[in-house]
């Protein structure tokens, strides 16, 4: 098994185009798979020296978060936390302090787990990612990346360079919650990311709710616009949100939760994240 440290995106793409090549960013998933012999790479491509992949930038266009920036560093970014608190909370939940010191958004997305904490929050924040490959860069919405558990749209030689988030317009709030059995260190049984924007009358102008761990990939709830746009949330619309969330679930039963449990919790977390996001939006 070789180990290479390319210093340009092109070199990285070429290295990753080799048979059996695996990208290494924070390594919190890859090293576990190596240890348990789940994968046997021919070459490990450490992409952390590629330009821009380790940087966080705030411009008038919005936010850039390099794909290999450790979560601990992202959480320390105060102005990002002010703009997208739900997203920062989501990535602060991944693993322990130690895991945070290494884990990355790029890895969390490309590991393609339905339970990835940052992904529903990134989707709710209308995030996109820049995919680098031998033929250049392309931009894709986050929700288009994962196609099934463990599988992404990335082609041979491609890797995620970083993430773009819009600068939130005033009156925007987001939130992420997950359900785990303990207080820390677990994989989400259900995760929910929600963002809403409101006008000066506190009426909702946009809403997005993304759920994780309740289907093979993260899903965006449909049909929320009619319920919420132009209105304040009320008991009736929130109850409908709960049933939309529940009926969108296509979960599996596994060691972490039953179908019934996941379905029920999806509704609870959709409701709770909307409540938090709405409160943040009217105070933003």
């Amino acid at each position: 098994m070789d180990y290479v440290t390319p210093t340009t995106a092109m070199e990285a793409s070429k290295a990753l185009a080799q048979d059996g090549a695996f990208a290494l960013a924070g390594g919190t998933d890859l090293l576990v798979k190596l240890k348990t012999k789940f994968v046997s790479p021919s070459v490990i491509v450490d992409i952390k020296q590629v330009p821009k992949i380790m940087s966080i930038e705030n411009s008038t266009d919005g936010w850039w978060i390099g794909a290999a920036v450790p979560c601990a560093e992202i959480s320390e970014h105060e102005s990002l936390r002010q703009d997208w608190p739900g997203l920062v909370e989501s990535l602060s939940l991944i693993g322990s302090t130690q895991i945070q010191g290494r884990a990355t958004l790029g890895g969390n997305l490309c590991n393609a787990s339905p339970a990835a904490d940052s992904v529903p929050a990134l989707i709710a924040a209308y995030g996109t990612c820049i995919i680098s490959g031998q033929s250049g860069d392309r931009e894709e919405p986050i929700e288009n990346i994962v196609t099934s558990p463990g599988v992404t749209v990335l082609e041979k030689g491609e890797f995620i360079l970083g993430f773009k988030l819009p600068k939130p317009e005033s009156g925007t709030g987001d939130a992420y919650l997950r359900l785990i059995p303990r207080s820390e260190m677990d994989i989400a049984i259900v995760g929910a990311g929600t963002s809403v924007s409101v006008d000066k009358d506190k009426k909702i102008t946009s809403i997005r709710v993304a759920l994780g761990a309740i289907a093979p990939t993260q899903i965006i709830l449909d049909g929320l616009e009619d319920l919420f746009i132009g209105k304040e949330p009320n008991e009736n619309s929130i109850n409908k949100l709960i049933s939309i969330a529940e009926s969108a679930c296509r979960p599996i039963k596994d060691k972490r939760g039953t179908v019934e449990y996941r379905t029920k919790i999806a509704g609870v977390l959709a409701k709770r994240t909307l409540t938090i996001a709405y409160k943040r939006a009217i105070n933003h």
């Binding site: 303990r182 207080s183 820390e184 260190m185 677990d186 596994d254 060691k255 972490r256």
Partner: peptide, 24 residues
């Protein structure tokens, strides 16, 4: 201990064999 129907233990690590952590 969580077993599947083949009699294999499914939670063979501290991630899913959930002993209390400090914040619990």
């Amino acid at each position: 201990y969580i077993y599947n129907d083949k009699g294999e233990l499914e939670n063979t690590g501290f991630l899913d064999y959930r002993i209390p952590v400090c914040s619990d």
